[in-house]
């Protein structure tokens, strides 16, 4: 009895597992994101969930931040109300995969436009030009830029190239600490164990805004990262529609307003809207 019932349990469980695994989502027949927005009035948008000021999941389950505002504006221009948007968390490692598999319709997640990524997905935008910068303790007057990092301890997130760049190009004597999340880096900088955190200035601004009076962004960006909106590689119509939407957002002042509301608290100087790169 024991044996037979055990096997039955396994068989049932295995069957139901394969069923859920293969069931997946129904294939979408909409060729472009424009069609999907028009027909379904619904979009799934990939965003970051752990970056204050850009894309952050808050306790009530909603998302806030600059990326989110951009995503909502673009969706609205495509004909989708905020209630029709499903935000889905993406991490750096799975953004291309999510787009290719159709798990998300577009990605607005501090997603830098690079040639390597253009092999797999296409980009509208840029909707923001960030630059690599340093986040230091507010009372730290000595750290004024990447050149001052010699002998200092620098934090970055594992697997990111920015920190390596600082080391090779600016401060060979800097020591590098790799953490898994920005939150851990921030904790260590606050705790005084490390001296600075490096990544894109707008991300840093989000953390500075979270700890007013304790952290500041140095404010001398030493690279350019163009944030784009990622979508399926062959979706030319979608790219054009999103670019038009961004253009409108830049023109009517919503862009500046969104940026000010998201990271303005840190004293981050709101720049001019970037030039779109249509292709």
């Amino acid at each position: 009895m024991f044996g037979r019932s055990l096997y039955a349990v396994f068989a049932v469980a295995a069957l139901s597992l394969t069923a859920t695994a293969c069931g997946g989502q129904a294939a979408a027949s909409n060729a472009s994101i424009v069609d999907k927005a028009k027909n379904d009035k619904k979009l799934v948008i990939g965003v970051k969930a752990d970056q204050p000021g850009l894309g952050l999941r808050t306790p009530d389950g909603s998302f806030t931040g600059f990326d989110i505002e951009v995503a909502k504006y673009v969706a609205k221009q495509l004909g989708v109300e905020p209630s029709g948007i499903t935000f889905k968390e993406t991490v750096s490692a799975n953004r291309e995969a999510f787009i290719e598999q159709g798990q998300v319709d577009m990605v607005v997640a501090t997603y830098s436009i690079t040639d390597a990524r253009k092999q797999k997905v296409s980009f509208a935008g840029p909707y923001f030009v960030a630059g690599q910068d340093l986040l230091v303790r507010a009372d730290d007057a000595a750290l004024t830029g990447p050149e001052a990092l010699n002998g200092k301890k620098l934090c970055s997130v594992a697997g990111s190239t920015p920190a390596q760049k600082v080391k090779t190009e600016y401060a060979k004597e800097a020591q590098l600490q790799e953490e898994r999340t920005y939150s851990s880096c921030v904790d260590r900088v606050l705790g005084g164990q490390l001296d600075a955190l490096t990544t894109d200035n707008v991300i840093l601004a989000g953390y500075a805004a979270q700890h007013p009076g304790k952290l500041k962004v140095v404010g001398k960006p030493f690279s350019t990262e163009k944030y784009g909106i990622g979508l399926k590689k062959d979706d030319t119509a979608g790219r054009k529609a999103i670019n038009d939407a961004l253009e409108k957002m830049f023109a009517d002042g919503s862009w500046t307003k969104a940026l000010q509301a998201s990271v303005g608290a840190s004293g981050f100087a709101v720049p001019q809207a970037p030039q779109l790169e249509r292709y």
């Binding site: 301890k153 020591q175 590098l176 600490q177 904790d187 260590r188 705790g191 164990q193």
Partner: peptide, 14 residues
């Protein structure tokens, strides 16, 4: 241990 107890086992991060 590292960040909060302030235990530094070496000055070299690695």
């Amino acid at each position: 241990i590292g960040a909060n107890l302030g235990l530094e086992l070496s000055d070299d991060i690695a």
